[in-house]
């Protein structure tokens, strides 16, 4: 359904290295207009680097990119005029008040005075910041800063928005406020490029998801497509009587029993066919089951399976990330 729409972001052969270290090793991305695309990957995979390249902040070493119909190499200002960016690290002026930050954005988007004030009031209201409008962001909580950051991004009515971990560190309610805002934007035709560490968030919001690891896109598709890539789905039968569990375990070859919980796990991808087969077997053998649940793999399983790396490499990466964090 999304394939026939024109691409809001199209990148091919994107490469970037920092010295010896190759961060992006030739990646291709296509994001259809009016959809949410989520880029996932372990710490240090290069998500922020990708966002910085696509949003004209840093230059790629190779590859061609077009954003909102503008070629990034030839017309960076054209791209800048069409995008909004909320980076991983706060991009507000700490010496101005929240309101002044928004008015500054209004001025830079060349809105007239009246319109600038109106939009500022509207955005403050929308993100529940009206009471904090006259305070400096250094006195805001992390969540309020994040909201101000997004509000500033929206001042220019961007067609394509980059959100780099927009909800990291937010409480569940504030996170949902952000999700609501993102959904409203998409309903209005905006394209969203989102990175996140919360796979549930990608599942909720994204039309398509890509997994970045070791400089490559290791998997891409809808959330359901990704989940089908890996095994791990099963049916779980719960029993009241250990004798029933014994009998069931004998009936289903390849099942795993959990004696403490009086439960049995049967591998299954959760489709109706295999479900009916299991129920038939239970009927024929007249086994009493207390309850049955279907488990499909979630994105966490996909993430862990596809970005798995040798322990040594993983440890190294963990060290690097820790180092990076202290430098910032």
């Amino acid at each position: 359904m999304t394939l026939d729409r024109p691409a809001a972001i199209a990148a091919t052969g994107l490469r970037k290295a920092y010295g010896e270290q190759t961060v992006l090793d030739g990646i291709d991305l296509t994001v259809a207009e009016g959809t949410v695309f989520s880029l996932l990957g372990p710490n240090g995979a290069g998500k922020t680097t990708t966002v910085q390249i696509l949003s004209t902040l840093i230059q790629a070493d190779g590859g061609s990119i077009s954003v909102a119909g503008h070629d990034l190499a030839a017309d960076a200002d054209g791209v800048r005029g069409a995008i909004g960016v909320t980076g991983q690290f706060s991009a507000v002026d700490n010496l101005l008040t929240g309101e002044e930050n928004l008015l500054l954005m209004a001025d830079l988007h060349h809105l007239d005075r009246h319109e600038g004030r109106r939009r500022t009031a509207e955005l403050l209201e929308r993100f529940d910041l009206t009471d904090a409008a006259a305070k400096a962001p250094s006195m805001y909580s992390g969540g309020m800063r994040r909201k101000l950051d997004l509000a500033m991004t929206l001042m220019g009515d961007p067609k394509v928005i980059f959100l780099d971990e927009p909800t990291t560190g937010l409480d569940p309610r504030t996170r949902r406020t952000m999700w609501e805002a993102i959904r409203e934007l998409v309903a209005g035709g905006v394209t969203i490029f989102l990175t996140t560490q919360y796979l549930e968030e990608a599942d909720e919001l994204a039309d398509r998801i890509a997994l970045l690891d070791h400089g490559k896109i290791v998997a891409e598709g809808t959330s359901d497509e990704l989940k089908r890539l890996i095994p791990g789905g099963h049916l779980r039968l719960q029993f009241d009587d250990p004798a029933e569990l014994d009998q069931a375990a004998r009936t289903f070859a390849g099942s795993t029993r959990d004696d403490a919980a009086l439960a049995l796990q049967i591998p299954s991808d959760g489709d109706v066919h295999s479900l009916r087969a299991v129920l038939d077997h239970l009927d024929v053998a007249s086994i009493e089951v207390a309850s049955l649940t279907v488990h499909t793999p979630d994105l966490d399983d996909v993430f862990l399976a596809l970005t798995g790396r040798p322990a040594e490499a993983a440890e190294e990466a963990a060290g690097e990330t820790a180092e990076k964090e202290t430098v910032r």
Partner: peptide, 13 residues
């Protein structure tokens, strides 16, 4: 070193 400069760089200023 202020984050806002990064924002300015992504805007058509």
């Amino acid at each position: 070193h202020e984050g806002i400069i990064a924002r300015f760089r992504t805007m058509a200023i």
